[in-house]
Design a protein around this nucleic acid. Structure first.
Lengths: 337, 337
DNA sequence: GTGAAAGCGCTAACAG
DNA sequence: CTGTTAGCGCTTTCAC
């Protein structure tokens, strides 16, 4: 290996600078020289050393994406979209898992590992409002989600409140009135759990239905098993309900599973709606109604924003906030009885 | 930003070499000097420039993982395990998606993008035996799966044939005899589809049951929708069957969905088994029986092997082949009637 | 035990 | 239009 610019230059009988110019197709190079160099590149099988280029130019051609856990479908699908978009721009993606731990999230933000990249797309789950300062970093950063407000960085996020409200309204439109929630985080205000719960409460208030704490199922994480456990607890509590709002699809699927184990028919006895519109939602049994939060748009916007920040040398343009469109996707789990 | 070794050296009143020695905790440095340097590092908030280190030492501290598509749960879960293992070794993971395209896979193998990393863990899906030569690369490479045999590289793979045979035997043990297959690839021999189908045929042969082409459902890809489509086609063909072997869990889940839409009860009318033991398999309705192919072990072994190759300077030790243990996981979708 | 100097492969001035 | 010359920040001989 180790074919360098020098080798190509020697072979083509030109200077290393000219080769560099051809590689980065810069304008000021004669056509014959260009062809000569290109031939040499072919013959020698030259491929630029990205590390050296990165060291010299400061541009690494890589971005980092930090998510809680790739095994969570939502983040896997998000990552797939981010990688696809980045690849189209000739940028590679390095993935970090934080395990939704506040400490690991904060540690990651100042990790030397990041200096292999030009910037970070960060989806925090453990950090909160009190950690705003940790987001004041000296590299391009785009934050996904709404755990932290008034952060000094670009945000791309979804309509958590409005989406949750629409999901709840959808259940109301079927005539359901006792709507259980699965996946709430005790005391949380910011963050997807808090915001979606707020949307649920807004819908309740607008419909004149009192909020009933007994209908709220809590869980730390949002794995399928957490949805199942929360539903088991809800059932064992003996409260009556005719619908369930899973704060995400994974929770909803876990809950749906337990409901059916317990002999409750979905949607006849209990209607179920989730949030995320995972690829698998249409294939659940029954197919799962949900809120499509515009994941693809979010990925594309986040990558675009980050690349733009990188391009502009991280100038301190005023932080932007982008919101994806959402829509309720009605499937079998919320068919009217 | 941009605190360099020089800055630390100046602050500590020592030479840059000494600082470097402390950072990489090399032995030959006095205790007082070491403390002095460490203090300076703290104060200045020095973090090493990994790009420069990579350029100089040749070690980038990164590895690439190439999979067909992160949105496929199997690969998402595999990637999660690889990242976790790599992180424990202080190595970051860069993910490439090939879309299961042969051309993109081959292109990736010689992509300059890879020289940001020390090596590649490669899970091909489009390449075949005729592409062995493309695997003869000059960087450490570990191949996952069995699309290519006699390759000049390390392999980590699963017992596709034996696992599939065990899955089929499990269905036999329930008294099922007409076992449909979902997700076969026409004419494929190597590759997961071909091997798992071979395992199915082995089980058939051992049980003295003739192979019936009518029971084989084909699909190009292994998305949920492909399993659903293959099952729809199988049903429309009107052949009788009392069990289904999904060549992976995703296919099985898609097929199960269609079966129930069509009024076939699982497992009473049709037993269903998959392959992969995805996180979601226990939460399907009914919970999905499957083959656990040892995904975690595969990830750990692949990372270990790659790091070892990298460590040893890519010496041409003889290619190794590692096989994970598997086991059949019986759940509700294959309960005896 | 520590310092000085060279150079990894590339880009970016600045000349010519 | 093309060549020369410095480094980017680090590790690594080789002296001391």
């Amino acid at each position: 290996m180790a074919v360098t610019l020098h080798d190509v230059a020697r072979r083509a009988g030109v200077s290393i600078k000219t080769v560099s110019n051809v590689i980065n197709d810069r304008p000021n190079v004669g056509n014959t020289t260009r062809a000569l160099v290109q031939a040499a590149v072919e013959e020698l099988g030259y491929t630029p050393n990205l590390t050296a280029r990165g060291l010299r130019s400061g541009r690494k051609g890589a971005l980092a994406l930090a998510v809680p856990d790739l095994a969570l479908s939502y983040f896997a699908e998000l990552a797939a979209a981010v990688i696809e978009t980045a690849e189209a721009a000739g940028v590679v993606v390095l993935i970090e898992q934080t395990g939704a731990s506040r400490d690991r999230e904060i540690a990651l933000l100042k990790s030397p590992r990041l200096n292999m990249t030009d910037g970070l797309i960060f989806s925090p789950l453990g950090m909160g409002q009190e950690d705003v300062e940790a987001l004041r970093v000296d590299y391009p950063l785009v934050v996904l989600g709404e755990r932290v407000f008034d952060a000094p960085t670009d945000h791309v996020t979804m309509h958590n409140v409005a989406g949750a409200r629409a999901a709840t309204d959808h259940l109301f439109s079927l005539g359901r009135r006792r709507i259980a929630v699965v996946g709430a985080h005790a005391g949380e205000v910011v963050g997807s759990a808090g915001l979606r719960l707020a949307g649920y409460r807004e819908a309740l208030a607008a419909a004149g239905i009192p909020f009933d704490e007994d209908l709220i199922g809590y869980s730390e994480l949002w794995h399928r098993a957490d949805g199942a456990n929360a539903m088991r607890e809800l059932l064992s509590r003996g409260v009556a309900f005719d619908a369930v709002f899973g704060l995400n699809d994974t929770l909803a699927l876990g809950a749906m599973r337990v409901l059916q184990e317990a002999g409750r028919r979905v949607p006849q006895d209990v209607a179920v709606i989730g949030f995320d519109d995972l690829d698998e939602a249409p294939y659940a049994i029954p197919s799962l109604s949900t809120v499509d939060p515009g994941r693809g748009w979010i990925a594309r916007t986040a990558v675009g924003l980050l690349l733009q920040r990188i391009e502009s040398g991280g100038g301190d343009a005023v932080p932007q906030r982008h919101l994806a469109d959402f829509r309720v996707v009605a499937r079998e789990s919320t068919v009217a009885r």
